[in-house]
């Protein structure tokens, strides 16, 4: 026959206690995951909804990121294209370029000769027949002007443009900055969109996880009640629900990552075709390591907070009623 416990028990050492505590948490976390996989369909649905919700802002972020990279590569192209008068020859253009290089505002000057311009034009494709019709090369010489970073502000560029136009060889000058600035504004807009959409869909994820955990708590009411009867602490009862929330978050985050990555793989084909039209390669950037970590930790945090809210609202702990 078993005797009732004497109240005095050997207290385990601190390290031992910590080990036990850690073991319990690992076991608890794994047991919770196992329980989620016991009901794959509802779990899968919740995870999918979270994944899709998070994939939207993540995809928008990736879009903005790639557009910025693209804009960066355009920044490297001429800020001002100076089109020379048609009667200016290549021989006359060289000293002009030499002269321009001495201007303090200008970092670099490239001459795009008529022939090379024509060749580029041919390479674009689609214009061969039209070009065949022409006897002479219709293209003027273009001088690509790269200003110094210190002179790249819109107002300064405008001054530079006017100065260039006063050259007698100049026909007209095109500034690439206006639309670049617009592009920048669009990027900023998209970035704001990422934040807004992220916040909104993040709230959605909170609600989804919260509701899922709420239903789970209702389903397990009897079990919870009995656990309370036999002396489970409220921390013990809450733990599996919080773990479930964290798992939902992690699985949802992984799903979002997968969706974005798949979408990028599918898009890379058409983007490459588009890029080849511009004679460049454009490898799409996906979610990098730090971005992936942000998505995953964010989704885990959302899952945890969502489940915590549900647990706070629907589990009132061991309370005599």
């Amino acid at each position: 026959m078993l005797k009732p416990h004497s109240r005095r028990r050997r207290l385990p050492k601190l390290a031992e206690q910590f080990q036990i505590w850690l073991m319990q948490h690992v076991q608890n976390a794994l047991a919770t995951l196992g329980r989620l996989f016991d009901t794959p369909v509802p779990t899968g649905m919740t995870v999918a909804v979270i994944g899709i919700s998070l994939a939207f802002p993540a995809a928008l972020y990736v879009l903005a990121d790639n557009l910025r990279t693209m804009a960066g590569s355009w920044d490297q192209t001429a800020a001002i294209s100076l089109f020379l008068r048609y009667d200016i020859t290549d021989a006359a253009a060289t000293p002009l370029a030499e002269q321009l290089r001495k201007w303090p505002e200008i970092a670099r000057v490239d001459i795009i000769s008529r022939d090379s311009a024509l060749n580029e034009f041919r390479a674009l494709g689609g214009f061969e027949e039209a070009l065949e019709q022409l006897k002479n090369n219709p293209l003027p010489i273009v001088v690509a002007i790269y200003p110094h970073a210190a002179f790249a502000a819109p107002a300064q560029l405008e001054t530079l443009q006017n100065k260039l136009l006063r050259l007698q060889e100049a026909d007209f000058a095109r500034m690439d900055t206006v639309w670049l600035q617009r592009f920048q504004a669009i990027l900023d807009l998209i970035q704001t969109g990422v934040v807004l959409l992220g916040g909104l869909l993040g709230m959605g994820v909170l609600l989804i996880v919260g509701n899922t955990i709420r239903l789970e708590i209702l389903n397990r009411r009897i079990e919870i009640e009995i656990m309370e009867l036999v002396g489970a602490t409220s921390a013990f009862i809450r733990r599996p629900f919080l773990y479930a929330g964290a798992w939902y978050g992690l699985l949802g985050g992984l799903t979002a990552w997968l969706l974005v990555t798949l979408a990028l793989i599918l898009l890379q084909g058409s983007v490459s075709r588009l890029a080849s039209l511009y004679r460049s390669e454009f490898p799409l950037a996906g979610l990098g390591i730090s971005e992936t970590l942000i998505v995953l930790s964010g989704s885990i945090a959302l899952g945890l907070i969502g489940s915590w809210i549900a647990v706070e609202r629907h589990l009132h702990g061991t309370e005599p009623n």
Binding site: A232, F236, T318, E319, P320
Partner: peptide
């Protein structure tokens, strides 16, 4: 206190 109730229940089999 409320947070001691579980420990009390461990001492009372029902």
């Amino acid at each position: 206190p409320r947070d001691r109730i579980p420990y009390h229940r461990r001492d009372v089999g029902m």
